[in-house]
């Protein structure tokens, strides 16, 4: 088995509402090899998005270790985590989460503004990313001028433009029709097979999950 890029070791996560503890994830352990495409499935409230957020470093586990490319991200400070995210994580959201006042080009360029790349180099990267998702001709369009599927493709371009270690997708097809769902899934498959991207995708949709190589189920905070 190839060396795992993600190692989740005995991770638990609880939220607190007033003094009431609400356990969300219970003693999760998981290893994901490099260049793998994993789908996390499960009913609502099972902890899928929480696990994805922990892997993205935008939430902290209550206990356990999370190693991404050998680094324990649970031990990083807030500032270090922000920097780590910019270098290692590409995120795709259910509702695309594009900045409405920025063009497709500018949205995709956002993660690169955190790098030391020159304007010219950034342009090259953005154009490449938008070409991969088939939207090279829509660079100057604002999100409101694009369809849902196109917006999600821009979001995918934004997620991969900085060549991150992991692409994390949270219900990437949850807001799309069947045709757009197929387009997005074939795009994610291509990123995995052609460009070797490690993808972890949370989904409800069994049709979308079919594109993944590994499907894991979460139920009541436990992985099966």
């Amino acid at each position: 088995m190839p060396e795992p890029i993600v190692q989740v070791e005995n991770v638990s996560k609880s939220y607190y509402r007033d003094s009431l503890e609400i356990p969300v994830l219970h003693d999760i352990s998981l290893e994901i090899p490099r260049a793998e495409f994993l789908a996390l499935m499960g009913p609502s409230g099972s902890g899928k998005t929480t696990l994805l957020n922990l892997l993205a470093g935008i939430d902290q586990p209550t206990s356990g270790h999370l190693l991404v490319a050998g680094k324990d991200i649970a031990s990083l400070s807030d500032g270090d985590l922000a920097k780590w995210r910019s270098e290692n994580i590409g995120m795709v959201f259910q509702f695309y989460n594009l900045m409405p006042v920025l063009t497709a080009y500018e949205n995709v360029e956002l993660p690169l503004l955190l790098t030391k790349l020159s304007r010219k180099e950034r342009r090259k990267h953005v154009e490449t990313a938008l070409s991969i998702v088939g939207l090279a001709d829509r660079m100057k369009h604002y999100p409101r001028q694009l369809s849902g599927g196109q917006e999600q493709r821009v979001a995918i371009a934004r997620a991969v433009v900085s060549d991150p270690t992991l692409v994390l997708a949270d219900e990437p097809t949850g807001d799309l029709d069947r045709k757009s769902t197929d387009e997005i899934m074939s795009m994610l498959s291509r990123l995995n097979s052609e460009f070797g991207k490690t993808i972890i995708m949370v989904t409800h949709d069994p049709r979308a999950a079919k594109a993944a190589h590994i499907v894991r189920h979460l139920d009541k905070g436990e992985l099966s």
Binding site: A56, G79, F93, M99, L110
Partner: peptide, 14 residues
């Protein structure tokens, strides 16, 4: 608020 969360998730600092 969601844009702020997205920017932070992309790696922009506080």
């Amino acid at each position: 608020t969601r844009e702020i969360g997205t920017l932070r998730a992309l790696g922009f600092s506080r």
